[in-house]
């Protein structure tokens, strides 16, 4: 078994997406979901800074890794266990701008949690997005369990789990990878390595350069990929998904990326990051980079770009308006859903 960490080379050329089996339409859809994730996030910051909503946690800068991997999965069949930054993942799996805004304003109709959780705590049984809590790392064993159930039923479904490099230090990460390795479960471990866990840099988090190296210790391959190159992420994820469906077991994908905002609306990243570093990564923005590629490959015309922009701003406007007006939960909602089945006598 290959446990060597591999670097995925960025292949040049005008039709990378086509050589990966993506039609122009699919390539544009990936672009649109990345942009939608970004646009929703930007709107949330605006509203937060105006004092109209208390909290934002961002996907900005990581949309390439998120949508690139998600696009290799089968929504509604495969499962995802996202973490709080993964707006790109859940939008790809069928969440809408309105869903996100309902969460953001913590409204009763919020499909993730009925306004109970902070924004970014995704979950939908219908969309095969497992509900997420705040303690980081807990979702990795869940993904292993989802994949175990697929294996028990002899189905070829895949569970993709997403987490930060900081969260990879949790014991649950080790326990889940170990178990998935033992049983060759169809789990895709996706580490979105953005270099920081709040303020703690990678050098204080792990002693290795590449988190993907850890996969060797669990008996499956690890791959490092440029997380700001959406097609590279798609390519690696596609390989991982094919392996997993064949029953060859898990893969650890380390997508090297960067968050372009502070950790959350309650953080001031100037206390631990240099402005120059952030500026440098802004130039590597995965959305701009992908747009450039799509234009150069002739897949994205000015007219198409214009249409996408309009569609997105319309969705975000509509979602914001709807969610801000939507009713709050009532005090009676507080005691609901503690159990699926309350014992009564």
């Amino acid at each position: 078994m290959a446990t060597k960490t591999q670097e995925v080379e960025q292949k040049g050329g005008q039709s990378r997406h086509r050589s990966l089996g993506l039609s122009d339409e699919q390539a544009l859809r990936i672009y649109e979901v990345m942009r939608l994730a970004r646009a929703i996030d930007e709107r949330m910051w605006l509203i937060n800074r105006q004092g109209r909503a208390p909290f934002v946690i961002s996907c900005q800068g990581q949309e390439g890794a998120q949508v690139g991997v998600a696009a290799a999965l089968k929504p509604g069949y495969d499962w995802v266990a996202p973490y709080y930054r993964d707006a790109g993942v859940v939008l790809w799996f069928g969440m809408t701008a309105r869903d996100q805004m309902l969460s953001f304003f913590a409204r009763r109709e919020d499909p993730n949690s009925g306004g109970r959780q902070m924004p970014g705590h995704f979950g939908s049984r219908r969309l095969h997005i497992i509900t997420t809590g705040s303690p980081v790392g807990a979702q990795l064993p869940h993904a292993a369990g989802i994949a175990l159930a697929f294996k028990q039923r002899k189905e070829d479904g895949v569970a993709a789990v997403f987490f930060g490099e900081g969260s990879s230090s949790q014991g649950d990460a080790h326990e889940a990878m170990n178990f998935a390795g033992i049983h060759k479960l169809g789990v895709i471990f996706v580490c979105e390595n953005n270099g920081y866990a709040i303020s703690v840099p990678q050098s204080q988090q792990v002693a290795v350069q590449n988190l993907a190296d850890r996969a060797a210790g669990y008996g499956f391959p690890g791959m490092v990929v440029d997380g700001n190159d959406v097609l590279a992420c798609y390519e690696v994820a596609k390989q991982a998904v094919e392996r997993a469906r064949r029953g060859d077991g898990p893969m650890l994908i380390e997508a090297k990326t960067y968050r372009l905002t502070a950790h959350s609306s309650d953080d001031d990243d100037r206390r631990y990051r240099q402005a120059e570093e952030v500026a440098l990564w802004r130039q590597k923005d995965p959305i701009q980079r992908y747009a450039k590629y799509l234009r150069e490959s002739g897949s994205l015309t000015d007219a198409a770009e214009q249409e996408i922009t309009e569609r997105i701003s319309q969705q975000v406007d509509e979602a914001t308006e709807y969610a801000e007006e939507a009713p709050d939960p009532t005090p009676d909602d507080l005691a609901r859903f503690v159990y699926k089945q309350e014992p009564r006598f």
């Binding site: 499962w79 064993p141 292993a144 175990l148 159930a149 697929f150 028990q152 479904g157 326990e175 178990f179």
Partner: peptide, 25 residues
């Protein structure tokens, strides 16, 4: 696969059970 000898890791055992339950078990 119906009586599984798990690794020695209690958090994993419960976490895996959660995931399996979500996926119909």
């Amino acid at each position: 696969y119906r009586v599984i000898d798990s690794p020695l890791a209690e958090s994993l055992i419960v976490g895996v059970a959660i995931g399996a339950a979500v996926n119909g078990m």
